[in-house]
Amino acid sequence: MSAKAKSGFRHLFMILLSLVMVYPVFWWIGASLKSNEELSSPNLFPSVPQWRNFTDGWKAIPGHTFTEFYLNTLGLELAVLVTTLVSCTLVAFGFARLDFPLKKFWFSVLMLTLMLPGQVLIIPQYAMFHQFGWVNTYWPFIVPHLLASGAGGTFFVFLLVQFIRGVPRELDESAKIDGCSWFGIYLRIVMPLTKPAIVTVVIFCFLWNWDDFLGHLLYINSVSKYTVGLALKMINDTQSGMQWGQVLAMSLVSIVPATVVFAIAQKQLVEGVATTGIKG
């Protein structure tokens, strides 16, 4: 085979594979516009698109709308993003730049907790938060993030430490000579230069909390505080006669934020996965 034919063959293979990979998503878009009767037909798109699936689905839970669930989720996301950024960057700066007794020990403890299966912590944490009266509030999400221990917290610290180590130390030295405090160095010198890593942290923190279904399931009970994931589970469980079109329409909308983030920061996201090995 000539080199050209080989390359053509390779591209053909990759195109077919890409189609197989994204086909379920195309089918999903079509199915969200189908009526229940048409769902079992293999056609990609319905003859008459049922836009009602979206409008009815939006109000599928009596007394509530998805507007409320999106606002809840976005509010929670905002709180979690801010707390994660503050705590993880401070901790990472400490590990990357400052010198203190037992630093190596604590850093290896941090590395060890990277591998710790979270399931061991679910029950005792639930018992603790239950005692504090935090069940059915957002505190079980915000407080761990404030302490760099939320979903992916240790990963973020690790990622930021690696990045900050690459920022030249000469910059600190000259700032110190100019009378800058360590906190000033953190805030004015190192943080601005850590922007790429911070963007990666923001992206993953957003995605993981959006998909933290088990956490939301455990701690949030009342419908008025529901996140989008819980609301989806609810219409999935409670709808009589199962309006599949509505369920698929609403779940399709729920992946829009992740898709937008991906579209904007595709390069950073993929590079974040590639360089740190974190799962997307």
Binding site: V86, S87, L90, V91, F93, G94, F95, L98, D99, F100, P101, K103, W106, V109, L110, T113, L116, V120, L121, P124, Q125, M128, P144, L146, L147, A148, S149, G153, T154, V157, W182, Y186
Partner: peptide
Amino acid sequence: WETPGLGYLFISPWLVGFLLLTLYP
């Protein structure tokens, strides 16, 4: 160490989190 106390101050969020939300649980 140049900055023993300050170092612990910076890592304190994680340290508290580790002790209270990982080790203790």
